[in-house]
């Protein structure tokens, strides 16, 4: 039975798609057959981050409307074995998604894949609700600032009340907090919420903390999931998060202000 994981946040621009790409890739690297679905119909971005935008022929909406089969629409990742992408449509809007249509596609994918990652659009409306409805687990992506934390709190409420698990009275969706764009220096100055502030407000288990890093933007522009950049802090932090998602214990890293070494300071680096 496949595990359906939604990557969601409420607020836009916090790193949902970056996280979906990184975590999906990370799970696939561990040998599990994984598919990432872009639910952001009309504003498709996942294919860009994954660097497969030129290979998109059919999309999620085509499959729902039976204009294409799943195997026609699924894009096999060139770098990572076991990884597939189901892109969103750029020309349609969220109304093209229906509960029945999404359910049918997910059921078919579940036969073949171990993990299904749903990259949710921002907001709390139809698109976001569709992405989280069938989820078994949720990764709530949050930036360490008040508006993002508030929106994450809101989406946690929706996970508890509007998901299929909630409606059928089953065990609630497993919740994970992923704190992204964390800047230890600014936390020390009191300009940003700290890990414990966010944990205190949201009261859900912490999956990982991804430090603010130039590597993320660079990776996005190159169309490479940042987790493959194994020498960057962000890449390593995503690696840790995937390990924790798989049930392994990993200590938190990159939470302290890095002290510049003598040579580095001398060279102004």
């Amino acid at each position: 039975m496949a595990k359906i994981i939604v990557v969601t946040s409420g607020k836009g621009g916090v790193g949902k798609t970056t996280s979906s790409a990184a975590i999906g890739t990370g799970i696939a690297l561990k040998g599990h057959k994984t598919v990432i679905i872009d639910f952001d119909v009309g504003l498709r971005n996942l294919d860009l981050i994954m660097g497969c935008e030129r290979r998109v022929v059919y999309d999620f909406v085509n499959v729902i409307n039976k204009e294409a089969t799943l195997s026609q629409a699924l894009i096999k990742d060139k770098r990572t074995k076991n990884l597939f992408i189901l892109p969103a449509s750029q020309t349609r809007d969220k109304d093209a998604l229906t509960i029945e249509g999404v359910q049918e596609v997910l059921e078919e994918l579940a036969k073949e894949f171990e993990y299904i990652i749903c990259d949710s659009p921002a907001g709390i409306e139809k698109g976001a609700q569709m992405a989280l409805y069938f989820a078994d687990a949720a990764i709530v992506v949050t930036n360490p600032e008040v508006s993002s934390v508030r929106d994450s709190d809101r989406i946690l409420g929706i996970l508890q009340s509007k998901s299929r698990r909630a409606e059928e009275g089953k065990e609630p969706i497993e919740e994970h907090l992923l704190l992204t764009r964390y800047h230890p220096g600014r936390v020390a100055l009191g300009e940003m919420l700290s890990v414990s502030d966010v944990e205190d407000i949201l009261a859900i288990p912490l999956l990982g903390v991804i430090p603010e890093s130039e590597a993320v933007l660079k990776a996005s522009n190159q169309g490479t999931p940042v987790i493959l950049d194994t020498i960057s802090e962000a890449g390593m932090a995503y690696g840790d998060a995937v390990d924790r998602l798989m049930g392994e214990e990993r200590p938190l890293r990159f939470l302290e202000v890095q002290k510049k070494g003598f040579i580095k300071r001398l060279l102004g680096g």
């Binding site: 809101r154 409420g157 929706i158 009261a203």
Partner: peptide, 19 residues
């Protein structure tokens, strides 16, 4: 369970929230 932003809970008698 925690009562999240945007949720509203009403009790006709007393209300006890354990989170």
């Amino acid at each position: 369970k925690p009562i999240r932003s945007g949720q509203q809970v009403y009790a006709e008698g007393d209300l006890i929230v354990l989170a």
